[in-house]
């Protein structure tokens, strides 16, 4: 059984922000796929939940000033079947197809996945490589935080208790950019990630070299970018040697820990192997495309 709590049911976003402002012991409830589980396990004890899942202002995917803007209450299933995401958020779409299971995907929201602050959040690595920002709104304030700064530790974010995530946004990647996502779980569906990787190649139509971004999940207290690996790859051709070195650097960027799903050493090692594989495939694909 769930513990006792108050549940507020705002009908509009301003109403929700008003409610959020009234107390610090409130918690927004969207899909509930993490929160209700935690409440039942008594891992979280908010006094008041504010149901934001049904707010129209927080749904949908749209293009705005060269950005893709995803409402925070868009479900993972929404992302999976959205044409804009398919085109401008390939790695995110791939993550959405392997996210938990179909029932969870119909409830879980992109905002909730980030707000929960799990190092294993499957939406995070794709959004990191997309250069996403998190839009936070309170009754009186509005700010945008880069995703890299949003999650600060295991289950910790910079979201103030009075703030709501209203949207996730990222600049539309240049035409010809490619994103991929790979997760490793202990079974082939409905598994918490032992590790996850998103890689994105940003095609620079300005004539500059293509840029590569790599993000990793479940191998550090937060989802991370593999900056050193990205720097190494910056500008140069994707030779097998460079790829191997970058994969090694990516692995060194992790602060993996051991848990019931795998040891730290295993995680580090497979990060190397899979980053190498994803980059090699990417190099092959782009080569094929050019020819």
């Amino acid at each position: 059984m769930l513990p006792e709590f108050e549940l507020l049911m705002p009908r509009t976003l301003p109403e929700a922000l008003e409610m959020m402002d009234e107390s610090s012991k409130v918690m927004p409830l969207a899909g509930g796929t993490n929160l209700l589980v935690d409440l039942r396990g008594r891992l979280s004890r908010p006094q008041t939940l504010i149901n934001i899942g049904g707010l129209d202002e927080l749904r949908g995917v749209r293009v705005e000033d060269g950005y893709i803007v995803v409402g925070s209450a868009a479900t993972i299933a929404d992302l999976k079947r959205n044409a804009l995401i398919a085109k401008h958020g390939q790695a995110l779409r791939q993550a959405a197809t392997v996210f938990a299971n179909p029932l969870i995907r119909n409830r879980a929201t992109i905002g909730g996945n980030l707000a929960y602050g799990s190092p294993a959040a499957d939406a995070a690595p794709p959004l990191l490589v997309l250069g996403a920002e998190v839009e936070l709104l309170s009754k009186d304030t509005r700010r945008t935080v880069p995703l890299e700064e949003f999650i600060t530790g295991v289950r910790k974010t910079v979201r103030h208790p009075r703030e709501l995530i209203t949207a996730i946004r990222w600049p539309i990647p240049p035409e010809g950019s490619v994103g991929v996502f790979r997760k490793l779980g202990l079974r082939k569906a409905d598994a918490i990630s032992v590790l996850s990787i998103a890689v994105m190649l940003l095609h620079m139509d300005t004539g500059d070299c293509d840029q590569l971004r790599i993000a990793l999940g479940a191998v550090a207290p937060t989802p991370i970018r593999a900056a050193a690996a990205e720097d190494l790859l910056d500008g140069g051709p994707l030779t097998p040697e460079v790829i191997a070195q970058a994969a090694q650097l990516a692995s060194e960027a992790t602060q993996a820990i051991g848990d019931i799903r795998g040891s730290a050493a295993y995680r580090k090692r497979v990060i190397t192997a899979l980053v190498q594989r994803l980059l090699t495939n990417l190099a092959k694909d782009t080569k094929e495309k050019k020819h």
């Binding site: 549940l7 509930g32 796929t33 119909n106 409830r107």
Partner: peptide
């Protein structure tokens, strides 16, 4: 389709 255990009746 959803898991009814993860939806509050009010929702």
């Amino acid at each position: 389709i959803i898991n009814s255990c993860l939806v509050l009746a009010w929702q």
